[in-house]
Design a protein around this nucleic acid. Sequence first.
DNA 1: AAGGTCAAATGGTCTG
DNA 2: CAGACCATTTGACCTT
Length: 254
Amino acid sequence: MGFDDICSSGLGLGLGWNVKENFSQSDHQQKKKKSLVRDEHFFPSLTLGPSSDADARKAHGDDQQASSVTALSSFSNSSVKKEGDVEFERVSSRVGDEDDEGCHRKKLRLTKHQSAILEDRFKEHTTLCPKQKQALAAKLDLRPRQVEVWFQNRRARTKLKQTEVDCELLKKCCETLTEENKRLQKELQELKSWKLTASYCMQLPAAATLTMCPSCERVANGGDGPPATTTSIPFTIGPKSHFINSLSHPSAAC
DNA sequence: AAGGTCAAATGGTCTG
DNA sequence: CAGACCATTTGACCTT
């Protein structure tokens, strides 16, 4: 026991990314997955302790549903403005000539009004049932298919935005963990140097009664002298370290 | 002209 | 199997 337990018990210190891949999907679906974004969940990990992998991986806040963050639409900076709404109406409304639609598609620009209504609906629900779609299409003078496509594209934008947000979050998390890793590495080094010091002190008669109080967590002489303080003893153990000299009884420290 | 945006098309999977 | 959804691509339009 003692320092040896701390320093040579497979204490591991690491920083890395845990990748939890969702393999639940069928094989034929995998070929479609070119991007990692959808089914992989990355979460950073920092470990200090036995290198067993048994420690529970915390479930991360999952599922990037449309968040309030993403509610701000990319439409807000829509570039169509110069020629005013008259121009909008000209290009946008009425894809009424459905027959020649297949030949060459004309760029459709939704009017501000149409976009606003669609946005409002999207804020309420990110999907539409057929009836809602019909009604909305009629209201906006668009085809149901156009409404459907708009919602698809809007969801895609939301997802992209959310991915960017998540990415930023993970970056920050990574930075934090890197700092934590550095700190723990430093602490480990200190513990190792303490071990060297202790093994040296063990050879001295007085140090044989070295004790650490479990309550105040200070190293003290177990003998007749006064309790040791941080100033009188060359080393003390911080709150997170739990070292008790096996040669003496813990309660004797105070 | 290059690059960005966005509506629309396409081709695939999933689900009831 | 139809319809909804998704990822990706295409093409028109816009800005710089």
